[in-house]
Design a protein around this nucleic acid. Sequence first.
DNA 1: TTTACTAAACAAACTAGTTGGTACAAATAT
DNA 2: ATATTTGTACCAACTAGTTTGTTTAGTAAA
Lengths: 194, 194
Amino acid sequence: MKILEMTTQLVLENGFAGTTIDQILAKTQITKGAFFYHFKSKSDLAYYLMRHFADSDMSVMNRVLADTQGHERNALERLIAFVDWFVAEFEGLNEPYMCLYASYLYEPEQFSDDTKQIVADSILLWRKELEELLEGAKKQVPSHVEFDLASLADHFTVIMEGAFIVSKALNDPSLTAQHLLHYKKYLELIFRVK
Amino acid sequence: MKILEMTTQLVLENGFAGTTIDQILAKTQITKGAFFYHFKSKSDLAYYLMRHFADSDMSVMNRVLADTQGHERNALERLIAFVDWFVAEFEGLNEPYMCLYASYLYEPEQFSDDTKQIVADSILLWRKELEELLEGAKKQVPSHVEFDLASLADHFTVIMEGAFIVSKALNDPSLTAQHLLHYKKYLELIFRVK
DNA sequence: TTTACTAAACAAACTAGTTGGTACAAATAT
DNA sequence: ATATTTGTACCAACTAGTTTGTTTAGTAAA
């Protein structure tokens, strides 16, 4: 929905508490009446904003999983292709990407448990899917280095989120892709790819 | 200062825009008169809050740099000892650590350029010091893997910041140390330790 | 006598949310 | 086939409460 997408932009710039309904009205060109027709309250908006963001995020993840399914015979190649997709995606940006999960996590008192649960569930879904990719690679190429599957899966998300922050701090969008390449290199070293 | 430290806690829970001066007065047990005696405005507070946080951060970094100076003869050991210090530090926490840099970066419109510059400068100081540690290690143990010094230095900060977020999302303080151990393992693989 | 406050009242601006209405299309009744 | 009702989507103006910041008059101590 247009309102949700435009408001997400405002929230990423001002924080949720720092975004006023009047700002949303000015940006989306709707009236207060229309706003409260669609949302019971500002905190109701917070919930739908996060649902929308998480839905998009999950659908990107699933699309990339589907797109890399062609590599089925080679699990390690598929894992690398998955990471490469995001490298390419973030190489194409000309301003730092920002994530609504992180935005909400840095003002947690503003949100209901329901809303925060969406964040946790989304991150656990990234863990689950990456864990499967890693497991496949591990079976195919028994690694000489020991590692915990879930933790190495989370490490992808950790690097993404951290890269968004450092990119933003230094106003250098290219950093995100660079740090994903470190994750890729780490995997290659673990699986002793040449 | 007591006010700055307590207010930082409030800001990390509510965001800066979401923290009211009345909340600060309630928490610090000072009066409105005292608050405006110390700070010209709320945005003046934002600046001193960040200065205080960055000063603490830089002094931790410098203390750990000094503490690991005993390893001078072995640059790689010193680098690893530096990382290990933070692993130990974050292993000892029983609630997720949160960083004011990230907090400010996720509501950038709330702050003056001066304030945001402190964040950028601090991150660049981490880069500078880690770059030197990495350079020492590289000279000592010419690595078989190619890497960019600045980027691998930033990668430490990236992993820290990302780990704070994932720790917070899953409410698992132990994750931060785990992900720093991934950075350590990555360095060991790059420098073919073991 | 300057520094560091306290207590309380106050104002101007802002903010979330309400109210009472309109426009219009689809469903239902006559 | 026409009239009436119903529901959806919206608007403009208003209200109640909050928030930042000021002011004033006074206290305690170094």
